[in-house]
Design a protein around this nucleic acid. Structure first.
Length: 421
DNA sequence: TCTGGGGTCCTAGGACCC
DNA sequence: TCTGGGGTCCTAGGACCC
């Protein structure tokens, strides 16, 4: 049984909030981006009210209030943990799972113990719902791109939430019902260029000459066309390769002008990035620091800049990375600007064990590695920010806004769900 | 007052080498 | 008037995704 299934959690963030507060069932919900900036998730009821994805919160706040929409700040500790539970549940019935995003997974169908893919899908859907409380939709097809499209169909048009392309009598006619922009990987911009070639529907793209698509767009688009035609160009990527870049950045809850506060923010980002770096068993050989004013405030003076510094020896030591990041910040900082965002990116990432030494510097990292491992263990066990560098500061007046965050029910001892008070 | 964060891949062009 | 050819590596920018 070849092919792929795409499992996609329905309105994932909104569904996570509902799991822990069933009163929200049937009520409109939106979830905001970091810093309570934009709407990034909506329940079906909120979609029906015409709340668009990506709308700035301050543009729709009054409408949300009028319609009694329940508003949540992003709660990534909760969503990340719920995601892990969903993925673990999928693995109980499907041995080959590629976690594609926080709310999506591709399954390989070669080794599953069901007569038909749709039977597996129905069983999975029921089990995920029962074990985690999260509703999912499942699309099945001979390529990832077709499974994606099948998922879209399942979510919109199938009560059971499962759809298999193989059951179609006329796949071309089915594909013709989708706009070309509905296809995974075809954005609005590419859709426009395809329309100029008179390719308007998914079906037309599937039937187009892939070489023509390559000439006018790119090899990436060519693969999409081939996949739509049923020719697999992408396999299942079960093991996630280590990240090649690691980014940690945030918008500030209010404009920041003070160099000390910027330094504390950058130190906090460095700590987060280094934790991710160590978690995947890597070291970084370069650090980039960037900062920017608020580009939406056109009446204010604007400044954005970035600087990359190399490390003598690849490191995952928060102290070393922070020191380099702060040195870069000192070069970048200009007084008299109102900064809105800063961040750091770790680059030139290498496996920790294959670290090349330094000709003249001592490179025994045992002490550093043990210290960092201890810090990570403490923070994992006792809660984030139990131990941190003083450079991060403690007041954190620049922290992002999160005025509507629900409790972190599953990851913080102090925020467990209260059944009776 | 208020507009997210975190990734990947591909391509073009310049630097540099023989 | 004439001024090689072919390759690799790096980087910036642009495209896409959730």
């Amino acid at each position: 049984m070849a092919g792929f299934a795409l499992v996609d959690c329905n309105n994932f963030y909104a569904s996570c909030e509902r799991v822990f507060d069933p009163r929200l069932e049937g009520r409109p919900i939106v979830v905001l981006s970091n810093n309570d900036g934009c709407v990034i998730a909506r329940s079906n009821e909120a979609k029906a009210l015409g709340i668009d994805m990506g709308t700035p919160y301050h543009h729709c706040r009054d409408r949300l209030r009028r319609h009694r929409v329940h508003v949540f700040s992003s709660n990534y500790q909760l969503y990340g943990d719920m995601s892990r539970r969903v993925m673990d549940t999928l693995r109980t019935l499907a041995p080959d799972v590629e976690v594609y995003s926080i709310d999506e997974a591709f399954l390989g169908l070669d080794r599953v113990a069901f007569a038909a893919p749709a039977e597996l899908a129905i069983a999975l859907r029921a089990r995920v719902r029962q074990w985690t409380g999260i509703p999912v939709s499942i699309g099945i097809g001979p390529t990832k791109t077709l499974a994606k499209l099948a998922n879209r169909h399942a979510k919109k048009h199938v009560e059971a939430g499962v759809f298999d392309v193989a059951g179609l009598a006329d796949r071309n006619a089915w594909l013709d019902r989708f706009d070309v922009e509905d296809v995974w990987g075809i954005s609005k911009a590419w859709g426009g260029r395809l329309r100029a070639l008179d390719i308007r529907s998914a079906g037309q793209l599937a039937r187009a000459d892939p070489r023509l698509v390559r000439v006018h767009l790119s090899v990436v688009a060519e693969r999409i066309a081939r996949e739509l035609a049923g020719i697999p160009c992408h396999g299942l990527a079960e093991v996630t390769p280590p990240r090649k870049t690691i980014l940690a950045s945030r918008s500030f809850g209010r404009p920041v002008t003070c160099k000390t506060e910027l330094g504390q923010a950058v130190a906090s980002f460095a700590a987060r990035a280094c934790r991710k770096l160590r978690a995947q068993g890597s070291r970084a050989a370069a650090v980039q620091v960037f900062l920017t004013t608020n580009r939406f405030r056109v009446e204010e003076p604007q400044y954005a800049n970035a600087m990359t510094v190399g490390l003598a020896v690849p490191s995952s030591d928060t102290r070393i990375v922070t020191a380099h990041a702060l040195a870069a910040l000192a070069h970048l900082y200009r007084p008299a600007f109102r900064y809105q965002k800063a961040g750091i990116m770790l680059l030139d990432i290498v496996p920790a064990e294959s670290g090349q030494g330094h000709l003249f510097l001592p490179t025994d990292q045992t002490v550093s590695d043990r210290l960092m491992a201890t810090v990570d263990r403490l923070n994992a066990r006792m809660g984030a920010d139990t131990v941190f560098l003083a450079a991060e500061g403690v007041a954190k007046g620049w922290s992002m806004r999160a005025e509507h965050r629900s409790p972190r029910y599953t990851t913080q001892w102090t925020e467990l769900l209260r059944v009776a008070a």
